[in-house]
Design a protein around this nucleic acid. Structure first.
Length: 372
DNA sequence: AAAACTATCAACCGCGTAAGT
DNA sequence: CACTTACGCGGTTGATAGTTT
């Protein structure tokens, strides 16, 4: 069955609305209320298609529309909801009072999507993607820093806009570690467990485990990445290593700390309930939690990062809170002390996701040419 | 100063579907 | 039940403002 045209388009105006047209539409809707869009233009004396009138009203003229920059909380809410709902812009907009689906869609495509790509996160699946990264440009731009044998802060290496749980960077870190290890084995005690919380990094870092055994992980799609049993020798497994280690006992590059405001717990170690609890001092396999990320069928890597953060912060950003209390997200200002929710710049927001996750100390013997 | 390029966002288009006849 | 109509949604376009060269 052919679709009926929404209106007769002959002689109807298109393009940007004039102030007079806006006034006509506002006046008419104030008197008669919205609805019956097909007849509205004729009744309101507008040479417009009803669809155009509806769009103008719902996206621009409606009195309850909130205009201006999206707050950090709104942005976080959008990301979380998108990880669950996908491109259901109207559903997302329903949870963001004052924001229209069109506005959210535009903001997603022009800001959030690009940021996620820079972070190495697939904006569709919210899963880490190595192929989205242009690591060569990053390295080239910072090669002078690499050649400096002194302390290298990865944050400065990446510039202020580069996030630090970028999977490619984690892979680079893994490579640095492996290249500089004379025994081609890791000194597990110096490894930030977050390095392995990314399933892809974990998969690619399989050779880094001295015993070749990697904890079992379940991806969001519930497929097992690694099924090898976990060694009972906890110290051979970086995910289970105690955190009271001596960072000075090796000439390995040292991952000094993890202090990402979103990701880290007060213990400076990732609390990632859906993965391995790195805080455990007990190396027994019996204490390894079930690594199932299936609480939400469409949960994502990023989702879990955010949720892990929220677990430690009174569910300030938990998915449940977002889903159940549409307006709470915009009112919540307790999320993070490091995040200025209203005045943060684009770069600051990105940094807030993951700043200072990793800091590396690069030994003098390391040759940057190996990476270029 | 001007051309070229990029980012933004309002508006349009076509499709799916609920509601009406 | 079949058909028609209207609405709402998501993808896309294009005008314009801003930035870079």
């Amino acid at each position: 069955m052919g679709r009926a045209p929404c209106c007769d388009k002959n002689g109807l105006k298109k393009g940007p609305w004039t102030p007079e047209e806006d006034l006509n539409l506002i006046n008419y809707i104030q008197k008669n209320g919205p609805g019956n869009w097909r007849n509205l233009p004729k009744n309101a004396g507008l040479q417009r298609c009803g669809k155009s009138c509806r769009l103008r009203w719902t996206n621009y003229l409606r009195p309850d529309i909130k205009r201006g920059r999206f707050s950090f909380e709104e942005e976080e809410t959008i990301i979380q909801l998108h990880s669950v709902l996908g491109n259901k812009w109207s559903a997302i907009a329903a949870r963001l009072p004052g924001r229209t689906d069109n506005e959210i869609k535009n903001y997603w495509n022009t800001h959030i999507r690009k940021r996620l790509l820079r972070m190495g996160i697939d904006p569709v699946t919210h899963a880490p993607r190595l192929d989205f990264l242009d690591l060569s440009s990053i390295l080239a731009a910072n090669s002078s820093s690499f050649c400096n044998p002194s302390l290298l802060n990865l944050s400065s290496l990446l510039g202020s806009t580069q996030p630090l749980f970028n999977p490619e960077l984690l892979r680079l870190a893994s490579t640095i570690l492996s290249l500089n290890n004379n025994n081609n084995k890791l000194d597990h005690q110096n490894i930030n467990p977050e390095l392995f919380n990314n399933p892809q990094n974990l998969q690619e870092s399989h050779h880094l485990f001295s015993n070749g055994q990697i904890p079992q992980l379940v991806q969001p799609n519930n497929q097992f990445l690694q099924t090898a049993p976990i060694s009972s020798e906890g110290f051979n497994n970086p995910m289970l290593a105690p955190n009271n280690v001596d960072n000075n006992q090796s000439n390995m590059p040292k991952i000094i700390s993890s202090s990402c405001p979103i990701l880290s717990s007060q213990e400076n170690i990732i609390s990632q309930p859906n993965y391995v609890d790195c805080r455990s001092n007990n190396s027994s396999t019996s204490n390894i939690p079930s690594l199932n990320i299936g609480d939400f069928p469409e949960s994502s890597y990023f989702q879990n990062l955010l949720d892990s953060y929220s677990d430690d912060h009174h569910e300030a950003f938990g998915l449940n809170s977002v889903m159940s209390t549409p307006s709470s997200s915009t009112n919540n200002t307790t999320v993070n002390n490091n995040i200025n929710s209203t005045s943060s710049t684009e770069d600051e927001r990105e940094i807030s996701y993951c700043s200072n996750l990793l800091k590396f100390e690069i030994p003098e013997s390391l040759d940057i040419n190996d990476f270029l």
